[in-house]
Nucleic acid binder design. Structure first.
Length: 936
RNA sequence: GGGCGCAUAGCUCAGUUGGCUAGAGCGCACCCCUGAUAAGGGUGAGGUCCGAGGUUCGAAUCCUCGUGCGCCCA
């Protein structure tokens, strides 16, 4: 035997694994995704879950326009975590992603690209360009979603431009028509008189423009508040203000605010010299009278606007008695506090008109000229040219109080740059109150589970208050409303039968057929006008509101083509969709099937920055999703998303992502360490580990794992991923890294490689590895799969994503053990404090150099577990002495007097006792002796 | 302006039906280890529970009114 120091390090079982510390996700994840694709993982999961209870999350289609952003990422990742966790809970949970492909933004983009050629391009050509544009973005977004690790049937998504989907829309429309929900009504829309076309809000450009601004007195007919006037006094008026005198022929009401205080005043008109009595908002009396040059006035009374409801006045130049109505949008910002109301020429006016069942007048043709419905003295005049004669007429009749030009923001056509008007046109509506659709929808809402629960209040309020749904749009890029106009009598023909006829046509040829095929080729055979009996028709040009399209997905996707089942288990979108998709879906579903298309609706908040402000490029707090994914990796972003309670808005920032990266590294390192100690456990039969060989701390760890599994599964059931994250992460950091794994080092490194003590530890490590990997698989699927590849048991061919969540092992529950650990951990905490002060005093470095003395009145308890206490504190030894009664527990620590074992670094009394191996402790001599390593 | 929400350490979250000195992890600071090493361990400092009233013996928690932020309307 030589005197050379023994290379004892070589005899330790130090961790070894190829599971790398460096994640390098930007490289590793795409390779993993490629592998999943090649292995057909999604299809294999479908096969594996075939026959299991089905829970379908139905994808709300994102708009196929532009790159995905953090909001899209949040939404898709949450959906993926839901779907994956359902699958791992044993459900058959297919995921068919979809895209919303029609609509104005794409059409707008195409028209802009066409520039001046747009006007000479046919609808059919525009539609082709739109389709190319939409499909291009579908491809881009699909790649980005796949890059995020979202699992689904990416080869067969649903597209709203798919003929089968279009047929589904028509099917829903046919049923709604059949039940009488669909009707034609007048509605004011933005109209360009130069291009003779309807414009959407997005097609307006607001520019400064000069218009007339007039104050007009309408003479009251009835309803002047009691006591304001007496016999023989001049008649009362109501004074309104408008910048569009040309809309006065369509005036049918004056709106006041129910809460605003109004004032009856008498003044002398400086121009006519007449004594006038009129009503104004009290707050505006001074201002308005000053503008008109009135020096003095007398107040005749005051009342709230509410008191004026149902009073009437006479139209200034048409034989018409009109009511005063209430509206909450009336303000005292400007004007008089009384608002001229023409439902045919304004959006708010239209709403008010609906509430009071006022007629919608719009005596203006496509070119902006007054029609025969207008007074004869303005017929044929362009509306703007009619301002002057109207003002003159008012002046002559003494109704005009004041006139002045006004410069203000006014909408103009984005194409021809000319000012636009509101003009009432016939549109298609879903009548929300027909056949109690509103009430039945509210009943259906009550039967749905809304998460969070306030979602129900939100959508209930919206459905309760919503007006009829205008489903027609005067655009090119969408699914046509297959209405036929009788060329004989002008009747619009849209029946369940004709819609179903076109449904079948669209299914065969796509909705393009409506635009490309001559009318007579696609007409239903033998169609006659139900009104005049003629057989000659023209196709109408309106398309459906895209909300109707996406809102019909329950038919085209759930109930038919994709065989997913109706209704869906869950819809999951941002909380803006209470007004959008959730509502359009439930309205069309209740109208056509009588029930909600979803059982549960889960909503998430919006992505904001770390100060709670909305994320926008202009604020400079915008984080591009694609860049972030490339830089940090999908699993890091997914972990980030999972760490936050999505019910509220979620704040994202570069710093936040970095913190998520730290969390990710901790988890990854925990896996790496565990795997490093399992390398030689691979292929070992865990059944060979006798339960009795498990140490006390092993049983404790298994109990903690059980608790984790229960907690995490419960959190998954509630879709509370942040609770999963909190539990799993803190388990890794606290229970494992800083405690169990740290304590285990001595046994793992220094005991015999295949001895029962080390095997017992490895048994626990393997369980920890397996169950942690499973619990994290829905959140960080790439890393979980990578980890799964290294698991000691089983075949590598099986993906973790085909597996199910672990079940708690009842055998691992041990209340007695838990109770014991309560005081052991408490004592450990106190011992660690003592060690820290020793360390501060430069007495020790590592805990292994310390010896602990416990003086306790109930010394037996500590004496019985002093070995365990030494183990969990990683100290040289724990000595227990009985204390006097009432002294409690006193703990002291000092530097151990024992020598350090050169192999395991523990300080033990027997080190040096063996002349043959003076630097080894007894345990290490035993271990090395058994291995034959101590033979000369 | 209206409806629906949210607000607890720097960050992410706990905190039963009101009841110990408001907790955890991360981060941070300091220390230790160098056999998880671009790792690991320990200790510690951080809070006007958004604000102001109110109810109560007692309020992060219940009520009222505000402030800020978000979504949806107007």
């Amino acid at each position: 035997m030589s005197n050379e120091p023994k290379p004892y390090k070589e005899t330790l079982n130090l961790p070894v694994t190829r599971f790398e510390m460096k994640a390098n996700l930007s490289d590793r994840e795409p390779r993993m995704q490629k592998r999943w694709h090649e292995e057909g993982l999604y299809g294999r999961l479908r096969a594996a879950r075939a026959g299991r209870p089905r829970r379908v999350l139905h994808d709300g289609p994102p708009y196929a326009n532009g790159e995905i952003h953090m909001g899209t990422l949040l939404n898709k990742v949450l959906k993926d975590m839901v779907v994956r966790s359902l699958s791992m809970a044993g459900f058959d949970s297919p995921y068919v992603p979809g895209w919303d492909c029609h609509g104005l933004p794409i059409e707008h983009k195409v028209l802009k690209d066409l520039g001046s050629r747009a006007a000479s391009t046919s609808h059919a050509e525009i539609r082709t360009l739109c389709q190319v544009e939409a499909l291009r973005w579908v491809d881009v977004q699909r790649e980005q979603f796949i890059r995020l690790g979202v699992m689904g049937d990416w080869a067969h998504p649903y597209l709203t431009l798919d003929p089968r989907y279009e047929a589904g829309i028509m099917d829903v429309l046919a049923q709604l028509v059949e039940s009488g929900y669909v009707a034609r009504q007048l509605k004011p829309i933005h109209w360009c008189m130069s291009d003779r076309t309807a414009l959407a809000e997005a097609e307006l450009e607001y520019k400064e423009s000069t218009t007339p601004s007039i104050y007009v007195n309408f003479q009251m007919k009835s309803g002047v508040p009691a006591g304001w006037s007496s016999a023989g006094s001049p008649p009362f008026h109501v004074m309104i203000w408008t910048t569009t005198p040309w809309t006065l022929p369509a005036n049918v009401a004056v709106a006041v605010h129910p809460e605003i205080v109004y004032c009856g005043v008498e003044y002398v008109d400086p121009e006519t010299g007449r004594t006038m009595r009129t009503i104004l908002a009290a707050d505006l009396v001074k201002q308005v009278l000053e503008k008109g040059g009135v020096r003095a006035h007398v107040e005749l009374g005051r009342c709230a606007g509410r008191a004026l409801e149902h009073a009437t006045y006479l139209h200034p130049f048409i034989d018409r008695e009109c009511p005063i109505v209430l509206a909450n949008y009336v303000s005292v910002e400007d004007g008089t506090g009384l608002v001229h109301t023409a439902p045919g020429h304004g959006a708010e006016d239209f709403q008010t008109g609906r509430a009071y069942r006022l007629p919608v007048l719009s005596p203006v043709d496509e070119a902006g000229r007054f029609t025969a419905e207008a007074p004869d003295w303005i017929q044929g005049l362009h509306v703007f040219a009619a301002n002057k004669p109207i003002i003159e007429r008012l002046r002559e009749s003494g109704c005009l109080y004041r006139e002045a030009p006004l410069v203000h923001s006014y909408p103009h056509c984005w194409r021809c740059k000319k000012p636009v008007i509101f003009r009432a046109t016939e549109q298609w509506f879903i009548l929300v109150d027909h056949a109690n659709l509103r009430e039945r929808t509210l009943e259906a809402i009550a039967a749905v589970r809304w998460l969070p629960s306030w979602g129900r209040n939100r959508i209930e309020a919206m459905v309760s208050g919503r007006p009829d749904w205008c489903i027609s749009r005067q655009r090119a890029w969408g699914v046509p409303i297959p209405a036929l106009k009788c060329t004989g009598c002008g009747e619009q023909v849209l029946t369940a039968a004709t819609v179903r006829h076109f449904r079948d046509l669209f299914r065969r040829e796509g909705a393009d057929a409506w635009f490309t095929r001559p009318t007579d080729e696609i007409l239903p055979e033998g169609l006659r006008c139900p009104r005049c009996g003629a057989g000659d028709f023209a196709k109408e040009g309106d398309i459906l509101d895209v909300w109707f399209e996406s809102g019909s997905s329950h038919r085209g996707v759930l109930a038919s083509e994709f065989n997913l089942g109706y209704p869906a288990f869950m819809y999951l979108e941002g909380s803006d969709q209470h007004r959008g998709w959730f509502q359009s879906s439930i309205l069309t579903a209740v109208g056509s099937t009588g029930r909600a298309p979803f059982e549960t609706v889960l909503t998430h908040g919006f992505v904001v920055d770390d100060q709670g402000r909305k994320m926008s490029k202009s604020l400079g707090n915008y984080i591009p999703a694609e860049t972030a994914t490339a830089k940090y990796g999908a699993d890091v972003l997914r972990l980030y998303v999972a760490s936050m309670d999505y019910a509220d808005d979620i704040g994202m920032s570069e710093r936040g992502i970095k913190e998520a990266s730290e969390s990710y590294r901790k988890i990854r390192n925990t896996f790496r360490y565990i795997l490093g100690n399992l390398e030689d456990y691979r292929g070992f039969d865990p059944d060979l580990v006798e339960p009795g060989s498990l140490h006390e701390i092993d049983r404790y760890a298994l109990g903690r794992l059980n608790a984790l599994v229960r907690g995490a599964r419960a959190a998954y059931e509630e879709f509370e991923f942040y609770r999963v994250f909190q539990r799993v992460y803190q388990f890794c950091a606290v229970e494992l890294s800083s405690f169990y794994l740290d304590v285990l080092k001595d046994r793992l490194y220094a005991e015999s490689p295949a001895g029962p003590d080390r095997r017992a530890a490895q048994f626990v490590l393997a369980k920890l590895h397996e169950q942690l990997t499973l619990l994290l698989a829905p959140i960080i699927p790439h890393t979980a799969e990578e980890s799964w590849d290294y698991r000691p048991e089983g075949s590598r061919a099986t993906s973790v994503h085909l597996a199910t969540f672990p079940e708690p092992e009842p055998a691992w529950d041990d209340p007695e053990c838990d109770a014991r650990w309560g005081w052991i951990l408490e004592a450990r905490g106190r011992i660690l404090l003592e060690l820290e002060s020793l360390r501060k005093a430069k007495q020790i470095g590592s805990a292994q150099e310390a010896s602990v003395l416990i003086v306790a009145e109930d010394a037996d308890r500590f004496e019985a577990h002093r070995g365990l206490l030494a183990e969990v504190c990683n100290v040289a030894e724990v000595v227990v002495e009985p204390g006097v009664a009432g002294s409690g527990v006193a703990i002291a620590a000092r530097r151990s007097a024992h020598a350090k074992c050169e192999r395991c670094w523990n300080h033990r009394p027997e080190v040096g006792a063996s002349p043959a191996h003076p630097t080894l402790c007894g345990r290490c001599q035993r271990v090395l002796g058994a291995a034959g390593a101590l033979e000369p």
